[in-house]
Amino acid sequence: MRKWLGVAVLVCALTGCSGGQGEEQAGQSQPLSTVQSDAASPAANGTTALPASTPTEISIPKIGARSSLIPLGLNADQTIQVPPVDQPMQAGWYDKAPTPGELGPSIILGHVDGNKKPGIFFRLKEMAVGDEVLVSRQDGRTAQFKVTHVEQIAKREFPTDKVYGDTQGAELRLITCGGQFDQAAHSYKDNIIVYAALVPPVS
């Protein structure tokens, strides 16, 4: 009888060992969770942009330009409004486009000259790739842009789609006049266009 009981105890002990194997299987499911976390880890490498906020000031350290910004709309003939020519140091932003930092192309205009004086963008043609443009906004943030491209182009060939067309990220266009001044037309023959892209905020 004792022998049988011993055998039974031995069998029960063996059964208890099999329970430990079950725990190991549960532990083996852990790698799955790490795989899941790996799958969830892809960085948000999408486009970075700021929410809409009215721009208040532009600063371009390289050319020493600094101005408050006034809103600009469209004239009756659907051309873009410009700051008053008798205030050549005043820059403005096009309010029918994204605000600076927002997804899409934001537009800031300034005179090269006016009232026989140099304007806010008199030295805009000196800008080069990598130069910095800062735009302060009403929400307290400052949108930092880096110049990606500068071009001088005849007004007759103004690249409307390139300037105002959709962009993948938050971008900025600085526009002024350039080239020769046509005395008869009282207008410059070219435009200087600076293309810049938003530098992702650190925070």
Binding site: D77, T79, D86, K96, G110, T160, G178
Partner: peptide, 18 residues
């Protein structure tokens, strides 16, 4: 994506020094 109204023509951003 904010909408944009595309203006017509090129901006006249220069009064001329002369």
């Amino acid at each position: 994506r904010p909408s944009i109204v595309k203006p017509v023509g090129a901006p006249e951003t220069g009064g001329g020094m002369q």
